[in-house]
């Protein structure tokens, strides 16, 4: 049958489900080994964070889509968790090969890293389900589109930005359209979101300048 936009969207959802149905929503044995190699084992923090962010995601999903859709939100979060653990394992493996070290205590105990990685996984899931061939304005699904997830997880845009390239690099199942979508997220962060007036980036730039000994005032964002 001819490939229609609706069929393409359905195929993308089906492909994502097939890949993630065989994945676990718990850390694999390999990932557990990376955790136990850390100076400080992050296992408990990882599990607690997942639980906490899961509640935030489900609450906000139900608020955006409808209280009757709590179960759907929970199912999508589970898909996101599977992708999160899958990508985390590949990412740490890739870092192990690149850096020839086994102890990733600093990275695996970094809250911003985990939250960004999970946000990126959920962005892939949400965008896969949210694709509409009809640009008919705001629907309940498009309300969940980027940068919605940053708000839900109270995540700094430039932290989210940091994981995108590595995420694309280590996840072979991402289709061209999804890579394009993540690239558009990158561009939006770089061109506007990271430079909004409430962005912590201005404070970080100021601190960086002060450390260098040049106390300049960061320029405020232009209108």
């Amino acid at each position: 049958p001819p490939q229609t936009p609706v069929r393409a969207a359905m195929n993308s959802i089906q492909q994502l489900k097939v890949i993630l149905n065989s994945a676990s929503d718990k850390p694999s044995e390999n990932l557990k080994r990376y955790f136990s190699n850390c100076t400080v084992n992050p296992s408990e923090d990882v599990a607690q964070r997942v639980e906490c962010l899961g509640r935030a995601f489900s609450d906000r999903f139900a608020l955006a889509v409808g209280q009757g859709c709590t179960e759907i939100g929970s199912q999508r979060f589970t898909l996101g968790i599977r992708l999160y653990y899958r990508v985390m394992e590949s990412m740490v493996k890739s870092e192990e090969e690149r850096l020839s070290v086994q102890n990733f205590s600093k990275l695996l105990n970094n809250n911003a890293f985990h939250t960004s990685l999970l946000a990126c996984a959920l962005e892939v899931v949400t965008a896969t389900y949210g694709w509409s061939p009809f640009k008919s304005g705001s629907t309940s699904e498009t309300d969940l589109s980027f940068p919605w997830i940053l708000d839900v997880f109270e995540l700094r845009a430039f932290d989210f930005y940091k994981v995108i390239e590595s995420f694309i690099k280590v996840e072979p199942s991402l289709k061209r359209d999804m890579i394009k979508h993540l690239e558009r997220c990158e561009h939006r962060i770089m061109e506007s979101i990271a430079w909004r007036s409430d962005s912590a980036l201005f404070e970080l730039l100021k601190q960086s300048k002060e450390q260098e000994g040049h106390v300049d005032h960061a320029e405020p964002p232009s209108t």
Binding site: F104, L107, N110, D159
Partner: peptide
């Protein structure tokens, strides 16, 4: 088989990116 521009260079990965703040 995509046009994504990989910009990270050698010595730049998630380990370094999340180490800087």
């Amino acid at each position: 088989n995509h046009d994504y521009h990989f910009g990270l260079e050698e010595g730049e990965g998630v380990s370094e990116l999340f180490d800087c703040d």
